[in-house]
Simulated scan of single mutants.
Amino acid sequence: MSPTSLRPVTAAYAALVERGALTADPAQRDAAGLLDDVLAGLEADQPKGLFGKLFAKPEPVRGLYLYGEVGRGKTMLMDLFFAAAPFPQKRRVHFHEFMDEIHAGMAAFRKSAKGKDADPVEAVVKPIVRSGLRLLCLDEFHVHDITNAMLLYRLFEKLFAHGVTLVATSNVLPDDLYKDGLNRQLFLPFIELLKQQTTVASLPAAQDYRRMKFAGQHVYAFGTGPDVRAEMDRLWLRITGGEPGAPGVVESIGRKIDVPLVAMGAARFNFRDLCEKPLGSRDFVRIAHHFDSVIIDDVPQMDRTKSDAAKRFILLIDNLYDRGVKLGASFAAPLEQLGLDDKTAFEFQRTVSRLVEMQSEEYLAKGLRDAAHEVQE
């Protein structure tokens, strides 16, 4: 059957297999079919005409909670699904980023004049509902602290009541969320709500495809010129399955970070795109949450004239390392000679140590870490 005769997500998946970017996996194909079911429900529920849009009562469409081990293709399938959703009232965000936004909104409301007696949860849900959001896609659903655990039922009860459909990926079953957490019995109603509003499906894919991309690869190149660039080009095509990539965007605190190339969960930047622009820790956290692999071209030696860029590079590597993101990079000089600025010498020693570890087989074989934490500005 040709990809053009299939439903949208399944067709996009089949096209990647046909191009050789993916190896066909029955479990991934089945998951693509489940995502197509959600899409079909959303399309059937689309309000028709002006009066339909004005007076339509929100009807929740059953979503999907897709869980499985790291590297099995959950993020890739979410990419295909989100791209296939043919309406603008959709949002995709990492779970922890979404919850940070909710907490920040509640805190701001409590400080306002209206926040003395009103419900802060209702206050943060209202603008979401007013935006017309129909589809919320959350990557890496994982509840690890009591503040989120105690909030989730009230938050999602309101979102579901307003017709928001949830599609989420996770490494764990719903029944294992917040396992052994403090006052977990108060969290159990949310698990039941989640199971009522989504189809829970596992992704038992045969292999860790993310690990296979980097098996036996040299991820760093040293020097400058066309040979080094060609080496990075080969690594890029290896980790993207031959997909050349296209420009993308990462949203961060109300602004957009341009990404020169995005493909198959990977991003490619030049050093100046990340370290010679006014980016900070929160921006680098966003990038680390959006991509499992990052390539950085043309990392220079950093002397006193590049002091600000050196500080950003240190922050960038810290965030990629903490998250377990796989790094490929070309460097103008050997790692131990990168930092020439006395002001950042001590911090650079730690960065070099981390760069050495990040090229090791042990680091490349590990999955992403749950490095959720709130970045203080």
Rank of each mutant, 00 (worst) to 15 (best):
M1V: 12
S5Q: 14
L6G: 10
Y13V: 07
Y13G: 09
A14V: 08
A15F: 02
A15S: 13
A21T: 13
D25H: 08
D25N: 10
P26W: 00
Q28N: 11
D30V: 12
D37W: 01
L39S: 04
A40H: 13
G41R: 01
Q46R: 11
L50V: 13
K53H: 13
A56E: 05
K57T: 13
V61S: 02
L64W: 00
V70A: 13
G71V: 00
G71N: 04
R72F: 02
M78C: 11
L80T: 06
F81D: 00
A83C: 09
A84M: 06
Q89A: 13
R91C: 07
R92P: 00
R92C: 00
F95I: 09
H96G: 11
D100P: 05
E101M: 07
E101T: 10
I102R: 04
I102E: 02
G105Q: 07
V124A: 07
V125T: 15
R130C: 12
L136H: 08
C137V: 13
L138V: 12
H144S: 15
N148D: 13
L151I: 06
L152C: 11
F156C: 07
L159A: 07
F160I: 09
A161C: 11
L166Q: 04
V167G: 04
V167R: 00
D175M: 13
D180P: 09
G181A: 05
N183G: 10
E192W: 02
T198Y: 08
T199Q: 14
V200H: 01
A201L: 03
S202K: 09
Y209C: 07
F214E: 02
F214K: 02
F214A: 01
A215E: 15
V219E: 02
G223L: 05
T224V: 10
P226N: 06
E231R: 15
M232D: 04
L235C: 08
L235P: 15
T240Y: 01
E243Q: 12
E243K: 15
P244W: 00
G245I: 01
G248C: 04
V249H: 04
E251Q: 14
S252F: 03
I253V: 15
R255Y: 05
L261P: 11
A267N: 11
A267Q: 11
N270M: 12
L274I: 01
G280K: 04
S281Y: 00
F284S: 04
R286V: 00
R286K: 10
I287H: 00
A288P: 14
H289Y: 12
H290P: 09
I295S: 03
D297H: 05
Q301R: 14
D303Y: 08
D303C: 08
T305L: 10
R312E: 05
R312M: 05
F313W: 08
L315G: 06
I317Y: 00
D318Q: 03
L320W: 01
G324V: 08
S330N: 12
P334I: 00
P334S: 02
E336Q: 11
L338H: 06
A345S: 15
E347T: 05
Q349A: 14
M358H: 02
Q359K: 14
E361L: 03
K366L: 14
L368N: 10
V375D: 08
E377C: 13
E377D: 12
